[in-house]
């Protein structure tokens, strides 16, 4: 609460303390620009992080709740084995439903590779059975053993080998986005510290005079801290607004849409970028305060 009161008093300001430090155009512009650019990138990194989290979740759920049984059997045994597989699946706990894919569906699956005119019925293509799972799914090993006995041409593909690398890739993308966000925060802190240090060095005479007339370090630091906090907040607000506008104008995800078109916020997620402005203010507050108090230690 003390810190909150400090921040509130800082934002309220002290006109006499504000005027003591002369305006410095270059560092003012640098701080506003840096905060705006970092907030802009921060919003995108946040959107990327949320999108990859959603993607990993979607891939994980979609693939975890379904599996495929491939039946490679001679033509005269194919229907019998398909019926046996469907019967076994109907008796297997954890299976919500199962169905054999029609020729048209199998043709549609192969169309991207062989074209739409593929004569599926004349080719020795395995019969595919789609299995939708429920609850914690079925016992894959038990099902394999049973199929081996009653439908020897059936092979269970529970999508694990597809799912794992996809989820891992999505999780790494998420980690990358969070890493980018952390780097953005650190870069913003470094740039504001640099700008504040430049302003402090340029105003060493002001600080010296203030110390000699009895000013406490915190009074002198406050004059710089408030200025940089307000500039960073203003820059962050501009950068955040622009980034949110860009994201809002991006095309929405649809059936044909991929990962990139899903780079957006959803629902209450649109409020998350608003956190970037107080975060920038907080970073500027601490970066400037730290730089000012360190610079003041060199003045008797």
């Amino acid at each position: 609460m003390t810190r909150l009161r400090q921040l509130a008093s800082l934002l309220k300001g002290d006109p006499s303390a504000d005027r003591i430090v002369p305006p410095t155009g270059f560092t003012a512009q640098l701080t506003v620009f840096t905060a705006a650019a970092m907030a802009f990138l921060g919003v995108f990194a946040l959107a990327l992080s949320l999108a990859t989290a959603r993607l990993a979740d979607r891939w994980g759920q979609a693939l975890a709740q379904s599996s495929t049984i491939r039946i490679s059997a001679p033509a005269d045994q194919r229907q019998a084995q398909t019926d046996a597989v469907l019967r076994i699946l109907s008796e297997t706990p954890g299976v919500a439903s199962s169905r054999a894919l029609s020729d048209a569906e199998q043709r549609a699956l192969l169309a991207p590779w062989f074209g739409p005119e593929l004569p599926v019925e004349t080719l020795p293509i395995p019969q595919l059975v789609e299995v939708i799972e429920e609850g914690r799914g079925y016992d894959a090993e038990g099902l394999r053993l049973r199929l081996q006995a009653e439908a020897p041409g059936a092979v269970v593909d529970d999508h694990t080998r597809w799912r794992r690398p996809l989820i891992r890739a999505a999780e790494r993308l998420n980690l990358l986005a969070l890493g980018a966000l952390t780097l953005i925060v650190l870069t913003m802190a470094a740039m504001i510290t640099l700008a504040a240090s430049t302003a402090l060095a340029a105003n060493r005479q002001v600080m010296t005079v203030l110390r000699l007339v009895g000013a406490r370090d915190i009074f002198i630091a406050r004059a710089f801290v408030r200025r940089f906090t307000l500039r960073a907040s203003m820059g962050a607000a501009i950068g955040t607004a622009l980034a949110v506008l860009f994201i809002a104008l991006m095309p929405r995800a649809d059936a044909a849409g991929g990962f990139l078109t899903d780079l957006a916020f959803s629902g209450a997620g649109w409020l998350l970028p608003l956190l970037i402005v107080p975060l920038a203010a907080f970073i500027a507050f601490w970066a400037t305060r730290h730089a000012a108090l360190r610079a003041l230690k060199e003045i008797p």
């Binding site: 002290d14 303390a17 005027r19 003591i20 000013a215 009074f219």
Partner: peptide
């Protein structure tokens, strides 16, 4: 304002 610096500083 230079004269009032000590007042402001205190």
């Amino acid at each position: 304002e230079n004269l009032t610096l000590p007042l402001a500083a205190s």
